[in-house]
Design a protein around this nucleic acid. Structure first.
Lengths: 331, 331
DNA sequence: TTGAAAGCGCTAACAA
DNA sequence: TTGTTAGCGCTTTCAA
């Protein structure tokens, strides 16, 4: 930088100004400086800038897994807004490890990132609330019920409710639900929507038709087999997410059952493979990209020192009827 | 830090030493310092450290898309090694935009990251080679043929060759290939393996059975429809990746064709949805996680100032025969 | 084994 | 509109 200043016959302060607040510098001086910058192929040392300004212009996204299309789609939305605002996105992969997430908060304290978007919470809710009080934090997807942490989520309860009501309208009485792990708020909400739908339609909840497990193809597969080995068997299964549902359909076929004729299936998420499944998967679509964008927008206002006007931002899910639920069979 | 020093009755230099090279400090002093750190809940300012040491302990991964399971799996491997070595992983999403990638190199020059792993190259090969000469860069997945840039890849040619030979052994003569975009080295290599297999088996290459397009479900779908609207139709299609193959199977079904009876299909990658497809997709499995790990390991040696002993590290692909190719029909 | 002190490259308050 | 100057928090050399 001092080389540039020397070559342009100005002070380093002026070079800095040209770079950061060009409007405060005379046009002619600007040109001299830019010329010198070009001549020397000068690259500002960002580390010095970050150190000096005590900001890094980067945020961290904490995810439980990278190979999950739901998080990937959300990160895509985050990245879009972050890039536009000049922020870098850094990864924090918890790999289902609760302690890891707290470790990442250290980055915040150590000034390595200006803010954090959490896509998973798990336990220790109060600790998070306290941290959110001191640093810019936004929750996406998962939620901290009742605590004042800005959160972006979709209509999990309503979405699940709508899906299960749809099955009931199609004549199903024995509807199973394979829920995600109860530590995850999203799992609890979808299960709540499921129970609500049963209740409002006068169907009593049957614990034998309610399973829990990790959101994965494998768990969906095993759950379907378990359900079908019982008696009475369900005639429809609402899975907590699409991966599970895809595993469930696979299992049904392995058992020689037809979907939706022998068992109707509905998922949640609408990942890109849902539509190309055979049968195409009926599912509750999460507006993942939008949710990611919104989360980043909120984080930006937070990092800007402003308060958010709400704590929970909910973006509507959309119920997508395809073939796996059997709606098109009846026609 | 000076607070810690004061409380522990030592100099800031000693505090720094305790943190960075504890073996150079007397045990008793160490304890005093640790006690003070704990008392004050001191968090070292990483920005200052980075500035001072001129290193950030972070690397950037440049990907063309986040919602692609292939890259996600590779990043997972990268992250594993990076985390173990104390490095952060930062994202660079090019979104198919060639210029974007070069922009990310500025981060390297500006000291924002210590190294870069590129998962996509596209054109301007010489420029990259030159940059790789000055900074730690590793290519993963894609390749710069003939240039001295450390690269991790899989056996694309051999894998494709094996897949197509398999189809030939099953009796197919009219085998189509839907290749990825030719700008991508991986696409060219797989296409090369395809042509090699035809050639060695005395089948003349038919341009009508060779299509190109983006690696996506939609392109796979359209390509299959295009191929089936021609005459003569292929009896087997080797797709450049799994997403395309999944789209292709979908299209075949939409056309009322059976897979593999009416048309055999093979993909490339072995993403997690390949196995649960109906029929399960025969594919060439890329050791993505391993490739990611290897790429990061190489980058670590590069950032360590050492030279690499080879330029290209190839990790073997594995041909996975499932149902979509029809091998199990013949039995 | 420890302390004193310089300085990394930049920004911003203040002065001119 | 521009220059002077102090200093961000840390590491590291040199001296004790």
């Amino acid at each position: 930088m001092s080389d540039v200043a020397k070559l342009a016959n100005v002070s380093t302060a002026t070079v800095s100004r040209v770079l950061r607040k060009p409007e405060t510098v005379k046009k002619a001086t600007q040109e001299k400086v830019f010329y010198a910058i070009q001549q020397l192929d000068y690259q500002p040392n960002m580390l010095a800038r970050h150190f000096r300004t005590n900001k890094t212009k980067s945020i961290m996204v904490v995810v439980p897994s990278l190979t999950n299309l739901v998080f990937a789609a959300m990160i895509d939305g985050i990245d879009e807004v972050a890039t536009a605002a000049g922020y870098q996105v850094i990864f924090g992969n918890t790999k289902q490890n609760t302690g890891k997430a707290r470790e990442y908060v250290a980055h915040l304290k150590q000034k390595q990132v200006d803010g954090i978007i959490l896509m998973t919470v798990r336990l220790e809710q109060e600790a998070w609330a306290e941290i959110a009080n001191r640093y810019p934090i936004v929750l996406a997807s998962d939620a901290l019920v009742g605590l004042k942490v800005p959160t972006v989520s979709t209509t999990n309860i309503e979405g699940a409710y709508e899906a299960v009501c749809h099955l009931i309208q199609l004549g199903h009485k024995k509807i199973a639900h394979v829920a995600g792990l109860p530590e995850i708020a999203v799992s609890r909400e979808r299960a709540k929507g499921y129970r609500l739908a049963l209740e409002e339609n006068g169907i009593t909840f049957d614990p034998a038709l309610y399973l829990e497990g990790e959101y994965s193809i494998e768990v969906g597969r095993k759950s379907m087999k378990k359900l079908m080995s019982q008696s009475p068997k369900p005639t429809a299964v609402f899975f907590g997410n699409d991966e599970m549902a895809i595993g469930g359909i696979k299992a049904a076929k392995e058992l020689g059952m037809r979907v939706p004729e022998d068992v109707a299936v509905i998922g949640f998420d609408d990942i890109k493979f849902a539509e190309v499944m055979d049968p195409p998967l009926t599912t509750v679509a999460q507006p993942l990209h939008e949710m990611g964008k919104k989360a980043m927008e909120i984080l930006l206002t937070l990092m800007n020192g402003q308060k958010t006007d709400q704590d929970v931002y909910t973006i509507k899910s959309e119920f997508k009827i395809r073939d796996s639920c059997g709606a098109y069979l009846k026609n």
